[in-house]
Design a protein around this nucleic acid. Structure first.
Length: 746
DNA sequence: AGCACGCCGACT
DNA sequence: GTCGGCGTGCTC
């Protein structure tokens, strides 16, 4: 590598396919030592200036007129070689340009110009015996005492986090800062680093056998420094988080960094507190709610190696750790890890790829693993299965009863609540317990169910629930199969065949009528429009200000509500009959999670699930807390129908303001893709076109094609060529969005 | 993505 | 003749 090589290879920030390659630029002498692989620069391109990413150095081929780099945007490289490789992989895999992939990877730091507010983390100013003394002198101000205790237990929280943790306002924190008992610093002070034992306050100190065994395996892999994937299958309350924390500590010991991803909904102040309590100022928190400045600050700390533990949501998977050694995906089955707007990446998939590139360990944790992951962890699959089959406190799982709503109908009860649920609610209220009533988010599309035998009309070809449209027409959103709503149920001849969907308001109304004295609160996206009110309702409920909480998905996840002794699922079928091949899996996950909400305190819990399909395996298996039973049943179904994990799917979503235009566009694409498929004789099936389940959003009509094939490569190839051809055709005005392995069809 | 270049129709 | 439609191809 001689001095003569001084042309930078630059990828310009354009998303077009034909500019997705390197362009060579001369490096002016002033910039020579400022530009490295990973630098962000501005370059003249055509007749304007664009930002570009330096991906290497080399000699331009033949007769091209070379221009000079116009400027360097940031002081240092914005991505590591590992992330550069990741960007290339993403471009290849998600059918986008490299520049778009970079935009995703770097999005957490895009607002560079935003205020660079110094990161204020609060630490106790004293340690050890001096701290004890200070605490004993604070007898007359309980709030300050609480804050100082918290600060000692969890050094390195931000001011507002600390205030929240001690259940007070930031004024109390300010008072202690003024007294000099707390201080502000960007890194953990040395006197605290010497006493890490003091920091281990939260969580259990001793691991049970299963946790110990799991940790041992993970640590062994970390020591070897090799790419390994573990699936940590632990029932609710089995102490997965403690295993994560120990694994992170083990990763740090090898001198590498750890990234822990949690679903949006679990990134609560308590979660942050738990991590900061263990790792103090080494923790960087990355999530979408941070302001540009805060996010940049955290990003910077990670990149510079000051923060070696990253806790965050989906996009934190791109954290610029210098040498990542461990990626943890908590609740790996959560669909929220899949981006649903622009580039549809899956954070789990990205983590796996990054780990492979960096020789790092991945831990996927869940009580209800996705079939994709579990199938890779059984019988000699590439993942290693680690099981936590027991709860840490040895408390039994709640008793789950399945209530047959068909029986209720037969016996003349057409109300929302079954008699067993009413009875249980009554008992619960009388004993002074708390209850949660859970409704699945109302289906976007309406599904037809027989209220007498529970039969659901499904597509004969795709096994997807048919959805109800105008004038009694039923439609499959995968293949566009059409049927007419029968007057009588084809299963049992009943007249009670209709589409359904009771909202949370309806349940609330009904509950108030039946239990006029009960204090009832509702929580859904309508009632919790403004930020924070969410948490307020939950706090109030936890404090016992309400008896019954009625809500949707959002109350199902990860909440610890010790007073709850009864959980009622109003209608398990809304989830079961979503027009999606994953409906059964979602239902099982949801019910398991909901059931995990009951009996978290000292009192035993009870769960009642109302359904028209009591014999469906995803309901009976959830009731029996039997993941593996569910897994076997569902895998059999997927195999027969050729759905993932036995195949790969892709969805092409076509959108346009004009309905006719989208339909024609989708149909034209279908013909084109069919031609490509038969031309290369690969086994890819193309379903549709059909209107998307949400057929119109913000004035844009939506149609879709679903591609299904054994090999992902084949699907990608077909789409790549199809898109290229469509792009060449300038008359084609319809926007196309590609989603490889979609998580849902909405 | 922009922008120029170029090859056809209907207009001062 | 020439103004302007948009199909085609290029940008270090």
């Amino acid at each position: 590598m001689g001095e003569t090589v001084s042309f930078a290879e630059v990828i310009v920030d354009l998303s077009s396919r034909n500019t997705d390659r390197v362009f060579h630029y001369a490096i002016p002498p002033d910039y020579r030592d400022k530009i490295a692989v990973g630098s962000m620069v501005t370059v003249p391109f055509g007749n304007r200036h664009l930002t570009g990413y330096v991906v290497g150095f080399g000699i331009p081929p033949g007769e091209v007129r070379i221009k000079e780099i116009a400027g360097v945007i940031d002081e240092g490289p914005v991505f590591t070689p590992e992330l550069l490789e990741l960007a290339r992989w993403m471009a290849e895999n998600y059918l986008c340009s490299t520049a778009e992939a970079f935009a995703r990877i770097l999005s957490p730091r895009l607002q560079v110009k935003a205020s660079r507010r110094a990161d204020v983390l609060v630490y106790p100013a004293l340690a050890g015996a001096e701290m004890e003394k200070a605490l004993s002198l604070l007898g007359r101000s309980p709030k300050q005492l609480a804050v100082l205790q918290k600060a000692a237990g969890c050094p390195g929280l931000t001011k507002s986090e600390l205030a929240a943790a001690a259940m007070t306002s930031s004024k109390t924190v300010d008072a202690l800062l003024k007294k000099g008992l707390l201080k502000v610093s960007a890194v953990m002070p040395a006197y605290l680093q010497d006493a890490p034992g003091d920091m281990i306050k939260t969580g259990s100190l001793t691991l049970n056998q299963d946790q110990e065994a799991a940790l041992r395996e993970i640590s062994a892999s970390l020591d070897r420094g090799r790419f390994d994937v573990f699936l940590l299958h632990g029932i609710t309350g089995s102490g997965k988080t403690e295993v994560y924390l120990r694994a992170i500590a083990a990763a740090l010991e090898t001198g590498r960094q750890a990234v822990a991803l949690v679903p949006e909904i679990s990134l609560t102040p308590q979660m942050v507190e738990l991590f900061r309590g263990r790792f103090g100022g080494q923790v960087a928190v990355l999530h979408s709610a941070l302001s540009g400045g805060e996010r940049y600050q955290e990003w910077r700390r990670v990149k510079e190696g000051q923060a070696s533990v990253v806790l965050g949501t989906r996009s934190a998977v791109f954290a610029p750790c210098p040498r990542p050694g461990l990626f943890i995906i908590d609740e790996e089955h959560e669909p929220s890890y899949k981006q649903d707007d622009h580039m549809r990446y899956h954070a789990r998939e990205i983590a796996l790829k990054r780990a492979q590139l960096a020789g790092a360990v991945v831990v996927l944790g869940s009580a209800t693993p996705s079939l994709e992951s579990f199938s890779r962890a059984v019988s000699g699959g590439p993942y290693k299965l680690l099981k936590l089959p027991r709860r840490v406190d040895e408390r039994p799982l709640p008793r789950v009863r399945v209530i047959d709503l068909r029986q209720e109908i037969r016996e003349g009860n057409r109300g929302i609540f079954s008699r067993p649920l009413l009875y249980a609610l009554n008992g619960c209220l009388e004993r002074g317990g708390q209850a949660i009533l859970f409704l699945n988010r109302r289906g976007y599309s309406t599904v037809v169910v027989c209220r007498e035998c529970g039969l659901v009309l499904k597509c004969p070809r795709c096994d997807i629930s048919l959805t109800y449209h105008l004038e009694g027409r039923l439609r499959c959103h995968y293949c566009n199969h059409l049927a007419v709503l029968p007057g009588l149920c084809p299963g049992c001849g009943s007249r009670y065949i209709r589409h359904f969907g009771a909202g949370t308001q309806k349940v609330e109304e009904e509950a108030r009528k039946i239990f006029p004295k009960a204090r009832i609160v509702r929580m859904d996206s309508d009632s919790t429009a403004q930020k924070g009110s969410h948490q307020k309702i939950l706090d109030a409920f936890r404090d016992g200000l309400y008896d019954i909480l009625i809500g949707t998905q959002m109350i199902a996840k990860g909440l610890d509500l010790p007073g709850v002794t009864l959980v009622g699922v109003i209608n398990a079928d809304t989830a079961l009959h979503m027009p999606d091949f994953r409906a059964a899996e979602r239902t099982f996950q949801l019910l398991t999670q909901v059931a995990g909400r009951a009996g978290r305190g000292g009192l035993p819990g009870e769960v009642l699930i109302q359904t028209y399909s009591p014999e469906h395996y995803s309901i009976s298996a959830a009731a029996a807390h039997d993941y593996e039973g569910f897994y076997r049943s569902e895998m059999a179904v997927r195999r027969v129908l050729g759905y993932p994990p036995f195949s790969h799917l892709a969805r092409l979503l076509f959108t346009h303001e004009d309905e006719e235009e989208v339909r024609k566009g989708a149909e034209k694409s279908k013909e084109l893709l069919d031609r490509l498929v038969s031309g290369r004789n690969c086994r890819v099936e193309i379903l549709g076109p059909a209107p998307a389940p949400l057929s119109k959003i913000k004035g844009h009509f939506r149609w879709q094609l679903v591609l299904k094939g054994r090999r992902r490569e084949n699907i990608k190839e077909i789409i790549r060529e199809g898109l290229a051809e469509l792009e060449r055709d300038r008359r084609f005005k319809v926007a196309v969005n590609v989603d490889i392995n979609p998580q849902g069809m909405f």
